[in-house]
Design a protein around this nucleic acid. Structure first.
Length: 803
RNA sequence: GCCGGAGUGGCGAAAUUGGUAUACGCGAUGGACUCAAAAUCCAUUGCCCGCAAGGGCGUGCGGGUUCGAGUCCCGCCUCCGGCACCA
């Protein structure tokens, strides 16, 4: 018989809510613990990824509560964004209606899982009392020059009809819809995250409780390169351009220069030269191609400008090319071509018959390609004979002395493009005035409300542009007629500070009270998917640093400890609606119950790893819960002796489960409870004292309380406890009870296991040797031969080396 | 190409510090209960040889260190993830 999980679950969900067990303030004597799962996009229905996420999070909430912490566990909604807007285009239903219906559904389902939150702190990004503070933060960045509008070549998704941040372009395609993105020159809003590149990189070092892979991904994304920047003169034109290189030591090997097609100097270079017309055609073509098309070419193409550059070290004149393998967005958009030491330059030089000069003596096997290794510098005047490091130092000093260059650090990170030509987002609080330029909306006029509209269809500009009565406004500076900014903010702006808002969600005078943030921040444990490794997690770190610089955030880093969960797969692919391989958690609530489902998610494998779904596994955890229920409620306990062995095992289970939860090894904590339960069932059948039985049951229920809370609470009550299990102290093991009376010692001969023998745990090496030598099998293997060595590690193992 | 992670039974996996490889669960096979089925309970379940006692082999591959290696070292292979014309 299976127990009535639906009745039990409903009963306890209600009790926890009425008793407000997980609602907290800052007035506690207890240490604080801020436990946060990445707030969800309200997609309409819980999927297994949510279940996994909230199961881990809720386990921790409940465990830390029992351990005596004041646990903040809030929940909210990342409720602006494209899917609601795309649905609105199809159905004509306002995104707000759609979004709020989905929030209601998901709230109900989260409660059905038994995951507990302080719902008094619930927030949603699309509420004016939330996005008002998005706008406020935007204005702070604007004041500090950290938010700016600029025309630049940006990524444009032709399907979603909006620009995208660099971070949202995956393999040259829109991360949302997979459409190949185009490059467009558009005036867009950026956050100057590059100003924080160094700090964002350096502070990764202190995040030692983050997964290494996330830190590595951020390191790569920020992309620090050390090198030099120096000025190069164009022969006979009175113009110069700067280049960046990581290999200034190879400067004598420069046999050409290359500018990106978008480089501002290009126009001056080609004007009036023989190459002008051809060059213009090349630039036009390069502009048209998307970045992946450019790369797909394989061959590096370029065109001679007809101009020459003067190498500052030796006065050599080298041709200047335009080529699209040089990117305007990185470094200075111009390079020195050193084919001897750079494979890309080698390829280009080979194609256009440019000379190749080695400045580092290649070792064998480098014929026909650039040599990237170290070695004595050659063909390089005063640098000859120096190794790479020394040559770099020398040339940088030389450039600096003459005032034409210096050592510098270059980052790959670009500024964060935050404007979107879409409706369902927070309006950017800026007014464009023909007399005053870009004027911030005064803080006391916030929020700039998102007006209701009828037509959401994308038209290449924000649908808001069509709302004339909203767009036309007065300039806050001069009072004249002006136009509102019609773009909305990237939803990643909303999510880059929501964890601060949870500390003070009702505040209507500020985004949050710094004192309350000081109590709760940083987030002690952050749990979510690894897909946010560079997007959300980088942006949130950036905004936190900005808020810290303003004196609002007490911390430089928002998330002390990060946990990224693995994906759920089925049939070798990520479980997803579009692939049609989903197993709906709601059905499992019906058939097996929330506890069994939670337990399966905890049990199926290491929480960080991807895990292959198997509904039979839920069957398994469900069976375990049934067995426990039967044992506690229905079984006859045959009266017998106290069992020190069972008590000992129960204490070992406390230690194991506690240690496993601390190290996020939930999958190994559960077998411990299964084994203990099985042994208790055997004891109940064969005879055990009521005292032992009750004590072990109590321990099992407490250990199970964070994992399968409904059944644990029900059985706690059924065994005569009036207290709320969730608020009981976590059990403590007694080390003295864990010691076993006998242990199995392995006896090896030449490293192979030949026998086992039960011995006392405090046996001496000499006793161990005597006992082992007395074993018949061991004698058989030694068989008169000389024992050359005895490795005794009592009481676990003894090894005789014979031969 | 660079960076990160992983490879253990039929399957999900365990072995936390170099010391009993395969805990726990799933699946499978046999049995008990039942008219039957479900549920439950009991037993078996890495591979090979053997009637058995027992023995040999075994953690992606090849070497090494060690009394002893899934674990450490060297060299590979495969898979997954990230970055990538970033000068």
């Amino acid at each position: 018989m299976t127990y009535d999980h639906k009745a039990i679950e409903a009963k306890w969900q209600q009790r926890w809510e009425t008793d407000k067990v997980f609602y907290v303030g800052e007035d506690s004597e207890k240490p604080k613990f801020y436990n946060l799962c990445m707030y969800p996009y309200p997609s309409g229905a819980l999927h297994q990824g949510h279940v996994r996420n909230y199961t881990f999070g809720d386990l921790l909430t409940r465990y830390k509560t029992m351990r005596g912490y004041n646990v903040l566990t809030p929940m909210g909604w990342d409720s602006f964004g494209l899917p609601a807007e795309n649905a609105a285009i199809e159905t004509g239903v306002h995104p707000r209606e759609n979004t709020e219906a989905q929030i209601a559904t998901m709230t109900r389902q989260i409660k059905q899982l038994g995951a507990m939150y302080d719902w008094d702190r619930e927030l949603a990004a699309h509420h004016p009392d939330y996005y008002r503070w998005d706008q406020w933060i935007f204005l702070q960045l604007f004041d500090q020059g950290l938010a700016y509008k600029k025309e630049a070549p940006v990524n444009w998704c032709p399907k979603d009809q909006t620009v995208l941040a660099n971070e949202q372009v995956v393999d040259g395609a829109c991360e949302r819809c997979g459409t190949v993105v185009e490059k467009k020159n558009l005036a867009q809003w950026f956050f100057r995250i590059t100003d924080y590149a160094e700090r964002l990189l350096d502070d990764l070092e202190q995040l030692d409780e983050w997964p290494e892979r996330v830190r590595t991904m951020q390191r790569n994304w920020i992309g620090r390169s050390e090198g030099a920047r120096f000025r190069i003169e164009v022969d006979g034109l009175g113009e110069t351009f700067d280049v960046f290189t990581t290999r200034p030591d190879t400067i004598f090997g420069m046999t050409f220069c290359v500018l990106a097609p978008e480089h501002p100097l290009v126009e001056r270079l080609i004007a009036g030269t023989e190459a002008e017309e051809e060059a213009r055609a090349y630039i036009r073509d390069a502009g048209r191609a998307s970045e992946i098309e450019r790369m797909a070419e394989g061959e590096k193409t370029g065109i001679f400008t007809g101009r020459y550059a003067i190498n500052p070290v030796d006065g050599e004149k080298v041709p200047i090319y335009i080529a699209d393998y040089v990117l305007m967005g990185y470094g200075t958009g111009a390079i020195m071509g050193v084919p001897g030491q750079d494979q890309r330059d080698w390829d280009f030089a080979t194609r256009y018959d440019l000379p190749i000069v080695r400045t580092v003596q290649p070792s064998d096997g480098w014929e026909g390609q650039a040599y990237l290794g170290d070695g004595p510098t050659i063909n390089s005047g005063f640098l000859d004979g120096l190794d790479q490091a020394a040559a770099k130092e020398a040339i940088i000093a030389w450039l600096k002395e003459r005032g034409i260059g210096e050592g510098t650090i270059q980052y790959r990170l670009r500024d964060w493009l935050i404007s979107r030509q879409r409706y369902w987002g927070s309006p950017i609080p800026i007014v464009s005035c023909p007399r005053c330029g870009l004027v911030p909306v005064p803080e006391d006029e916030l929020p700039v409300l998102l007006p209701d509209i009828q037509d959401y269809a994308p038209k290449g500009q924000s649908p808001l542009a069509g709302v004339e009565e909203w767009v036309v406004t007065t300039c806050p500076a001069c009072g004249g007629e002006a136009m509102r900014e019609t773009d909305t903010m990237d939803t990643f702006v909303d999510s880059s500070w929501y964890f601060f808002r949870f500390t003070d969600p009702g505040n209507d005078r500020a985004p949050f009270d710094p004192a309350r943030a000081a109590y709760w921040m940083p987030v002690d444990q952050y749990i979510g998917g690894v897909e946010h490794a560079v997007l959300h997690l980088l942006y949130a770190r950036f905004i936190t640093k900005v808020l810290a610089d303003m004196g609002l955030s007490p911390v430089q880093e928002p998330f002390a400890r990060l946990f990224t969960q693995g994906m759920i797969t089925l049939g070798g692919a990520k479980m997803s609606k579009s692939k049609g391989n989903v197993v709906d958690p709601l059905e499992l609530f019906e058939t097996h119950g929330a506890d069994a489902l939670r337990l399966y998610h905890l049990f199926m494998g290491p929480p960080t790893d991807d895990a292959a779904w198997d509904t039979n596994g839920v069957e398994g955890t469900s069976r375990f819960l049934d067995r426990l229920h039967r044992l506690v409620v229905d079984s006859e306990v045959v009266d017998g002796e106290d069992s020190p062995e069972l008590i000992s095992e129960a204490n070992r289970a406390i230690r194991k489960v506690t240690e496993d939860i601390e190290r996020f090894a939930f999958n190994t904590a559960i077998p411990q409870l299964m084994t203990l339960t099985n042994h208790l069932a055997l004891a109940a059948r064969d005879g055990v004292s009521r005292a032992t039985f009750d004590q072990v049951v109590g321990i099992i229920l407490k250990l199970l309380a964070p994992m399968a809370p409904h059944l644990a609470h029900e059985l706690w009550e059924r065994t005569g406890n009036a207290s709320m299990l969730a608020l009981e102290p976590w059990p403590v093991w007694d080390e003295s009870l864990i010691v076993e009376s006998t242990v199995t010692m392995v006896v090896q001969v030449n490293g192979k296991v030949r026998d086992r023998v039960n011995v006392s745990p405090d046996i001496s090496p000499a006793e161990a040797e005597a006992i082992a030598l007395g074993l018949e099998k061991v004698q058989g293997w030694i068989d008169g031969a000389q024992v050359r060595n005895v490795i005794a590690r009592p009481p676990d193992l003894i090894n005789f080396v014979v031969g």
